[in-house]
Each structure stands twice: as C-alpha cells, then as structure tokens.
Amino acid sequence: MSDKLNINIRPMEINPTVDCASDTEYTFIAVDPSGDELDLTDYKFLMELRPYARSKRLFDTMSTENGRITCEGGKVTLKFPAATTAGYKFDTAVYDLIAISEDGLRYRIAEGQIEFYPEVTNALV
C-alpha cells in the first residue's frame, strides 16, 4: 500500500496538438506548486475526451489500463495511436487527467483542450 500523499495541486493546463491518423505521443512532467517533480509511479491514470465540460457525450477514454497512458516518476505520456485517431470525427476535445493512488485517492493533475488535425493523405501503403 502506498503512503497517503496529499498532492494538493491545481491541475496543470496542458493543451496538446495531435495529428490524426499518425502515431502521436505527448509527454509532460507533473510538478508540485514549488516546481518539484511528483512521483506518480504507482498511480493509475484516467482521462476522458469530451466536446465540453460536463458533456454526457464521450469521444474517447484513455487510461493506464488500456495502455494509452504511461508514467515513470512524474513523466506522464499520453498515447494517441493512428488507428484510433483516424476515426475521430471531431477537431477539438476537452479533458482532465485523473491520477488514482493505490489507496483510491483521486487527483486531477492536468486539464485542457486538445486540437486534432485531420489527415489529408489517407491511402494505405
């Protein structure tokens, strides 16, 4: 069981850009208010993409369980596989990224809007 750590941070605003139909990864370092890297090694992560906050419509779900979010220390990587993003029918989405401790404590560590650029060349090689 992990030590109960109260992260006590405001979510970082992160607004990545993703090229649809291209394997894209976005990595950032989660830090506390003093700028020190957080250790989130044993945390699970959950992130939902929606058209706007509080929308019931869900575009996509990313998590450590489905392999689309990884974390080493405070280095968090979001994975947008080409096969998934090729099917996106939207240009922007809002999200928040939740870190869940082994004790079940939930922390919103990042939030923002993601822009998705559609592909132009769609022929399979």
Rank of each mutant, 00 (worst) to 15 (best):
L105Q: 10
R50I: 09
T84F: 05
A110E: 02
V31H: 06
S34H: 06
S63P: 01
Y107L: 02
P51D: 04
R68A: 09
L58T: 06
D19P: 00
G67I: 04
I14M: 05
K89G: 07
M12R: 15
S22M: 15
R50P: 03
D103R: 15
L38S: 03
D39H: 04
D36H: 11
T85D: 12
M62H: 09
F45T: 04
E48N: 09
I114Y: 02
A53Q: 12
T24F: 03
D39T: 04
R54V: 13
R106M: 15
F90T: 05
F59G: 03
F28T: 04
S55D: 09
T64Y: 01
D42Y: 12
A123Q: 14
Y52E: 15
T84N: 13
V120W: 00
D32S: 05
K44L: 10
G73R: 12
E65H: 09
D60W: 13
G74C: 08
G112A: 01
T77K: 14
T61R: 12
A99D: 04
P11R: 09
V31P: 02
D103M: 15
N15L: 01
P81M: 13
C20V: 02
A30P: 03
E119D: 11
Q113W: 00
T41K: 03
T121V: 10
R54S: 13
G67P: 02
Y88K: 12
N6R: 10
K56C: 03
I114L: 08
G74T: 08
C20H: 01
I29Y: 01
P118R: 05
Y26M: 09
K44H: 10
F90V: 06
G35I: 08
A99P: 01
A53D: 12
S101F: 00
Y88Q: 11
D19A: 14
D60N: 14
R10P: 00
G67Q: 03
E115Q: 10
C20L: 06
K75T: 15
A93C: 11
L58S: 08
V125H: 09
I69Q: 02
T77N: 01
D23F: 07
E119T: 15
N15D: 06
D96V: 09
D91R: 14
Y95Q: 07
C20E: 11
M47E: 04
A99S: 07
D96C: 13
C20R: 14
P16K: 07
N8R: 10
A110K: 08
Y26D: 06
S34M: 13
L5G: 00
P11D: 06
D96P: 00
G87S: 04
D42K: 08
F59T: 03
M1N: 11
Y88N: 12
